[in-house]
Nucleic acid binder design. Sequence first.
RNA 1: GGCGACGUAGCCAAGCGGUAAGGCAGUGGUCUGCAAAACCAUUAUUCAGCGGUUCAAAUCCGCUCGUCGCCUCCA
Length: 486
Amino acid sequence: MPLRIYNTLTRKKELLQPIEDNHVKLYVCGITSYDYCHIGHARSALVFDMVVRYLRYRGYKVTFVRNFTDIDDKIIKRANEQDIDSAALALRFIDEFYTDMDALGTVRPDIEPKATEHIGEMTELIQTLIDKGMAYPSGGDVYFRVERYDGYGRLSGRSLEDMQAGARIEVNEQKENPMDFVLWKAAKPGEPKWTSPWGDGRPGWHIECSAMSKKYLGATFDIHGGGKDLIFPHHENEIAQSCGASGMEFANLWMHHGFVTIKDEKMSKSLGNFLTIRDVLQQYSAEELRLFIFSTQYRNPLDFSEHALQDARAGLERMYDCLAKIEQLPAGDEQGPQVVGKKDRDKLESLEERFQHAMDNDFNTAQALGLLFDAVKTLNKVLRAAGGQVAADDYNLLTTTAATIKQLGEVVGILQHDPVEVMQQKKEQLLAAIDLSEAEISNLIEKRNQARANKDWATSDEVRDTLLASNIVLKDGPDGTTWDVK
RNA sequence: GGCGACGUAGCCAAGCGGUAAGGCAGUGGUCUGCAAAACCAUUAUUCAGCGGUUCAAAUCCGCUCGUCGCCUCCA
């Protein structure tokens, strides 16, 4: 029954115990909007989409906040390169982000705050830190005084000494300590700026999340999430700012997902080995992409390859095919022979429970999906054994299990389309690429059936080979011949 | 250099102290005129290597090797 989540802070799986009974408050670091999103961003969005869906499925109320960083060095730089306004650039890529998210079918967060709309909250927080001696203005900037916060390094598991030893930080004369980080940046000429007690400027990156999470979720909340690359310095600094200012705990649980890699290297802009979400969605459906992403547990690295996506496609089709067959099954016959054995019945009836058990273990989607596939395997076996004549009891088991599979699929966002239609659409799509209509295929099948009735195998095989040349595969079953596009 | 993660069949991937899920691919069989599909069976005496703890280890501990990540913007 209990849901356990791996907490980066303690390096252990911990029971989820929301501060407010049954209400989970979740903050996720969103994108910096200056470019199209790549598959790594898709993984992030999809992982937390799954988390929210699962928590809600388990009966929790979830308040989900995900921010937009719409002011930052990269945005300014990119806007300058294109000679456009930085705010306009940021807005444009927020729009593009929504386009991608809608295509992926992710649930919208409840609140999506933008950094530029919370400057007041940030300056207030910075002032609190200055008042407490945890921050200091210097030359128009304001810096966080890292040595004044005892717990600095506890999230990333490193000591201040370790970090200083290997510091690759640029020497900055304005800092008291090289590890101090900026809370407020003085504006250079021509840069976007806001007024503050320390002069015109803009916020540093980390302060926005501290300010906005506090505003919408409170000083202490349940889960804070993001990619592994945010652990240091971003989340470490958030903890320092938030705990430093409030004197209270910040997020109770820290969830960090692994990277998407290509040939085992991190996908990133600097390496140039990234694919955008829309690139991939041109070739693969959102559900295929989801199946691929959830084929491994969220903390592990996930290697992107054409082969892996093809596997996901084959797997998803296998599931839909099974569901479609059940949907088209004639209602159960009271007289029909029962073919489902006790072992299979128990297995199918306990599917939801076992699925929950897997997901309760730190959202183990890989195992959960394995259980779904295992159920499909069993359903296929039953369908085969029944041969179209299903006993009423078996029929009920088949249809309720199919409904359960669809319901559980919703947690990871797959199997949400009508199975019969999906299989039909798949055919039509592929047919469109071939110069044959369904009617022509039916005619050819009819011709072949006549030839077969006359035991004219030469003609029969000729028809089959002709169709095969157009990627149409014939399947002779007990109820006649059906076909599929290869 | 500091810190961390990972190494399970041809590929992907669960399992986290009680004797190796699942997917893709392969092989044999049922079915078929022959096929295809589907189904059934089968595919790791073994979990990078070497030691140790334990009645029992892929699972815990130590060392070695290998891969990757963070330490600078990054999901």
